[in-house]
Design a protein around this nucleic acid. Structure first.
Lengths: 221, 221, 221, 221
DNA sequence: TATGAATGAGCGTTCATTCAT
DNA sequence: AATGAATGAACGCTCATTCAT
């Protein structure tokens, strides 16, 4: 952090002590630093607007207005619109991935780990509506491919894949393609979350237990 | 009969005689009807572009160029951009709905009807990639709500709901919310289709049979 | 021009005569046409602004305002800013080239043709200040190379080169590189024009005769 | 002595002791002077960019990037963009003026002084392409007038004017307007330099001697 | 002295839409 | 019915410049 080097005479206030120097070499760093709050504000504004008006109608100036910054300020933090979307996606994906893998250990029986994972997913999605809606929209847009994020997208499911692989090794799960198993773990939960937000089917305990059971019935060996 | 008035330059064939005029006032009544091919061309161009570049980058002029018509021609067939998207969605939704309900009769055992429906879905989606990608993109965008198509969207699943209701009446399916059952019928199939198009997991017989079985295991009573 | 073909019933007013047709084939052309005045207005505005504020400060919106059109209208007539500058340059260059070659015949003695050419140049430049200033500015900017107009630029001097070649063949001019001769025909005249516009040295008869004589003294064999 | 007050993080070397502080208030008096190298780097970068991309596309940030300084650093050395261009012009003009007047004495015969001057001009221009291109571009732009440099521009020709005046007094040169004589001394040489850089006509001895002779033929009494 | 952060104004261009024919 | 011309508004982005350190 301390990067610049000057020969100066300085007087430094260290608490109550004053130190005077004459022609001493001083290294110091006193540039204005990027404000992490601002980056976050831009992300938040983008998420909210995307979920309100969608990719078709969002714009850099609307985001800036929503985030209470000048639209040129966005370009201090991101190279361009695509770069911002990419970084936002990586950010959200990381959180989602971490969220779905919480409290999972290799020592758990697979059936319990499966239950915990679905609970994690529902927990995360229900308490992060914005992330959920954004991921749904972004994942189904051609942008994800154009930005070269196809591989990144798969990486998000790393915790699920780990579980699946173990389940297959332990003969608890059907010995079939990962993607087929994923189709009956992840996607039904996302559908469940949609129902929670838009239809009457709330994500209550009863329904959640049912989803967990149905998913297990589908994938178990 | 003769109702419109224009200043045009015209050449008229009266029997064998040709009359040329320059900037003459012409009153005429044109019998030409809207060209259904053109409406279709606009739809097709829109679908292709949406799946190529997405909602964020599509525009009326790009659609027009792609459909080989003038951009003002689009306004002969549609009121505005939103109207076009709405009509396109209704069009595709209708086809999808019809596709998934094909060859289904009330006399079939529920388990067979369920199998037929999933086969229908996969058939339709695999042979109509553009419709599938459009529906995924459109369904997860806030536009669907803003255009007042929330109810329309649910209507698409009418054939599935009918099957589900019968299944529950006949005690073949779990007596739970429709949306939960839908989560394990429709969404896994869409996920399966995604894998077919983008990952290695092809929609071959073996995989398809597996999806049918998994779905049934999940929903059966 | 008459391009579209319709089967209509029309009534045409030819002077006082009215012709009625029923289901007759009619070819007609009634699109709005590009307005040549507008293209000219854009050129004129660009020239004036370039000479007032220069390449560094000109902008499409300023040009549009000056030409009394919407800035998007410019894009009906030109592909982009560079295209506009290129077409403007070609337009002006053509006029300049025609101007300097006026009233020149192969039967004139070289010395007379040389005199006529310098008179042409001065005439053209003095009565087309905007063209002159634009050409000076454009010719010395790197844009001319970037737009691939390097060869075009040389073509402008075609009438001079023709004269020079003949002069060398007839042993009236020094048997040296064309560009050296050009340096003592074209450039001094441009310098003379600059003086006329900005310094006291007016382009009167006396001074003009002097320039003609000096140029001839420099180039004659 | 100690005059400025900043909140910085610093590391101070007091003999062998190192003191690190975090966000400490520091009063100091920096002795560093403006770095002449930096001013020069900015000038050089500006010249290069102007000749590469021109006035239309240059910008402070591009200059800064090219000169390897922060764009705010430019404002330490110059008031604003115009000020920078003005100072750059004065700088280059001064060098050009000095270059063309080198090795000229009042005791030389006018004809020799004329020859020397043209050799000076060609020497300077050929070995300072950037200066030459910049002067051509700047001189033909309206900026030179807006920045109030019209008089300065004429001053550049001081060595030529001195020679011309003497030549007229000694009856060696035509008794005509200075600007007319200038038109056959300075401008042909600039045209010659252009040919040297862009066309085939190299500034070799033969051609140079020819230019000197032609110029003299034009201006001699 | 030097610079990264910050910004309102403006850039070149495209937008969705209407007009005139 | 069909379309090229036309446009005000908005786009994504860069500008020249100032601020804070």
């Amino acid at each position: 952090m301390i990067t610049r080097r000057w020969g100066c005479s300085v007087r430094i206030a260290l608490g109550n002590t004053l130190i005077d120097t004459e022609r001493t070499i001083v290294y110091f760093n006193c540039m204005r630093q990027k404000d992490e709050n601002k980056r976050e504000a831009i992300f938040t504004a983008t998420l909210q607007l995307l979920n309100e008006i969608g990719f078709a109608d969002i714009s850099m100036s609307k985001i800036a207005r929503h985030a209470n910054v000048s639209s040129s300020t966005i370009y201090v933090y991101f190279e361009n619109k695509e770069d911002m979307f990419r970084k936002l996606y990586l950010n959200v994906k990381e959180k989602m991935s971490r969220g779905m893998g919480a409290n999972l250990t290799l020592s758990m029986p697979v059936v319990d780990a499966h239950e915990q994972m679905i609970r994690n997913l529902v927990d995360f999605v229900v308490s992060n509506k914005d992330y959920f809606l954004f991921l749904e929209q972004f994942s189904s847009s051609p942008m994800i491919v154009r930005l070269g994020l196809g591989e990144e997208a798969k990486q998000m499911f790393h915790p699920i894949y780990e579980l699946i692989e173990r389940g297959k090794r332990e003969k608890q799960l059907k010995p079939i393609d990962n993607s087929l198993l994923l189709s009956f773990i992840y996607y039904p939960v996302m559908s469940f979350a949609r129902s929670h937000f838009y239809d009457g089917t709330k994500a209550n305990d009863e329904n959640l237990n049912m989803v967990i059971r149905m998913s297990w019935d589908a994938i178990k060996a």
